[in-house]
Amino acid sequence: DHWEIRVGDITIHLKDVDEEIIRWVEEALRNGDDLEEIKRWVEEVLR
């Protein structure tokens, strides 16, 4: 699977990601969370 999350001008590409993570990231972006923080979290989860 390949996911693209778009929020404003930001697009995040994710592969082999659980839908729950996608929802979490979308929510975090909508809440204005720091992008670097989100990326770190996702990388942590995917490890």
Score class of each variant (00 low, 15 high):
residue 37 E to Y: 15
residue 8 G to A: 05
residue 22 I to A: 06
residue 24 W to Y: 09
residue 25 V to R: 00
residue 22 I to T: 05
residue 4 E to M: 12
residue 33 D to E: 11
residue 11 T to L: 10
residue 40 R to H: 04
residue 8 G to H: 06
residue 41 W to V: 09
residue 32 G to A: 07
residue 35 L to E: 05
residue 15 K to M: 10
residue 39 K to H: 07
residue 7 V to E: 02
residue 38 I to L: 07
residue 22 I to W: 14
residue 46 L to D: 00
residue 14 L to I: 07
residue 9 D to Y: 08
residue 2 H to R: 12
residue 22 I to N: 01
residue 1 D to M: 15
residue 34 D to R: 11
residue 6 R to I: 07
residue 43 E to Q: 13
residue 14 L to W: 12
residue 45 V to M: 14
residue 31 N to D: 02
residue 29 L to V: 06
residue 3 W to F: 07
residue 1 D to N: 15
residue 5 I to G: 01
residue 37 E to I: 08
residue 34 D to I: 14
residue 19 E to G: 07
residue 13 H to M: 12
residue 31 N to P: 05
residue 11 T to G: 03
residue 36 E to S: 06
residue 3 W to Q: 02
residue 18 D to W: 15
residue 19 E to R: 10
residue 44 E to P: 00
residue 13 H to L: 12
residue 45 V to Y: 15
residue 18 D to S: 12
residue 31 N to V: 06
residue 6 R to W: 04
residue 12 I to L: 13
residue 41 W to D: 00
residue 2 H to Y: 14
residue 3 W to E: 02
residue 3 W to D: 02
residue 1 D to S: 14
residue 41 W to S: 02
residue 19 E to K: 11
residue 3 W to V: 05
residue 10 I to K: 09
residue 19 E to N: 11
residue 47 R to G: 12
residue 26 E to I: 15
residue 23 R to F: 05
residue 31 N to M: 07
residue 38 I to G: 00
residue 36 E to K: 06
residue 26 E to H: 15
residue 34 D to E: 08
residue 14 L to A: 04
residue 15 K to R: 13
residue 28 A to D: 00
residue 27 E to C: 13
residue 41 W to C: 06
residue 23 R to W: 05
residue 14 L to C: 04
residue 35 L to I: 12
residue 23 R to M: 07
residue 47 R to I: 09
residue 22 I to D: 00
residue 46 L to M: 09
residue 25 V to E: 00
residue 18 D to C: 06
residue 29 L to E: 01
residue 13 H to R: 12
residue 7 V to W: 10
residue 26 E to S: 15
residue 3 W to G: 03
residue 32 G to E: 05
residue 30 R to W: 07
residue 40 R to E: 03
residue 25 V to S: 00
residue 22 I to M: 12
residue 25 V to H: 00
residue 26 E to M: 15
residue 36 E to P: 02
residue 45 V to G: 03
residue 41 W to E: 01
residue 40 R to M: 03
residue 13 H to G: 05
residue 35 L to R: 04
residue 32 G to V: 09
residue 4 E to H: 13
residue 47 R to L: 07
residue 2 H to T: 12
residue 15 K to Y: 12
residue 44 E to M: 15
residue 36 E to W: 11
residue 35 L to S: 06
residue 38 I to E: 00
residue 27 E to F: 15
residue 12 I to M: 10
residue 2 H to G: 09
residue 41 W to T: 03
residue 36 E to M: 09
residue 35 L to Q: 06
residue 40 R to Y: 03
residue 24 W to L: 06
residue 12 I to T: 02
residue 6 R to P: 02
residue 14 L to P: 02
residue 13 H to E: 09
residue 38 I to R: 00
residue 28 A to T: 07
residue 37 E to V: 10
residue 32 G to H: 10
residue 11 T to K: 05
residue 21 I to Q: 02
residue 46 L to W: 06
residue 26 E to V: 15
residue 23 R to C: 01
residue 46 L to C: 02
residue 27 E to A: 14
residue 35 L to M: 08
residue 27 E to L: 15
residue 15 K to H: 11
residue 16 D to K: 08
residue 36 E to Y: 09
residue 40 R to P: 00
residue 26 E to R: 15
residue 1 D to I: 12
residue 32 G to I: 11
residue 32 G to C: 09
residue 16 D to G: 13
residue 39 K to E: 03
residue 27 E to Y: 15
residue 14 L to Q: 02
residue 30 R to M: 09
residue 5 I to T: 01
residue 5 I to K: 01
residue 5 I to A: 01
residue 31 N to I: 04
residue 40 R to F: 03
residue 35 L to A: 06
residue 5 I to P: 00
residue 30 R to A: 10
residue 33 D to N: 12
residue 24 W to H: 07
residue 47 R to N: 10
residue 14 L to V: 10
residue 10 I to M: 08
residue 25 V to K: 00
residue 19 E to T: 11
residue 20 E to K: 11
residue 41 W to P: 00
residue 23 R to K: 09
residue 34 D to A: 10
residue 20 E to T: 12
residue 10 I to P: 00
residue 39 K to T: 05
residue 16 D to M: 11
residue 8 G to L: 12
residue 4 E to C: 14
residue 33 D to C: 14
residue 22 I to R: 13
residue 11 T to P: 02
residue 8 G to D: 04
residue 4 E to R: 08
residue 30 R to S: 05
residue 6 R to H: 06
residue 1 D to C: 15
residue 46 L to F: 07
residue 31 N to G: 05
residue 26 E to N: 14
residue 14 L to H: 02
residue 20 E to L: 12
residue 5 I to Q: 01
residue 23 R to G: 02
residue 45 V to N: 09
residue 38 I to Y: 04
residue 43 E to D: 08
residue 20 E to M: 10
residue 18 D to K: 10
residue 4 E to I: 15
residue 20 E to C: 00
residue 39 K to F: 14
residue 2 H to D: 06
residue 29 L to N: 00
residue 38 I to N: 00
residue 13 H to D: 08
residue 6 R to C: 02
residue 7 V to F: 11
residue 43 E to L: 15
residue 25 V to N: 00
residue 37 E to M: 13
residue 24 W to R: 07
residue 17 V to S: 05
residue 28 A to W: 12
residue 24 W to P: 00
residue 39 K to Q: 09
residue 16 D to C: 04
residue 43 E to G: 06
residue 30 R to T: 05
residue 38 I to A: 01
residue 8 G to P: 01
residue 36 E to T: 08
residue 45 V to P: 00
residue 32 G to S: 10
residue 28 A to K: 14
residue 38 I to K: 00
residue 46 L to E: 01
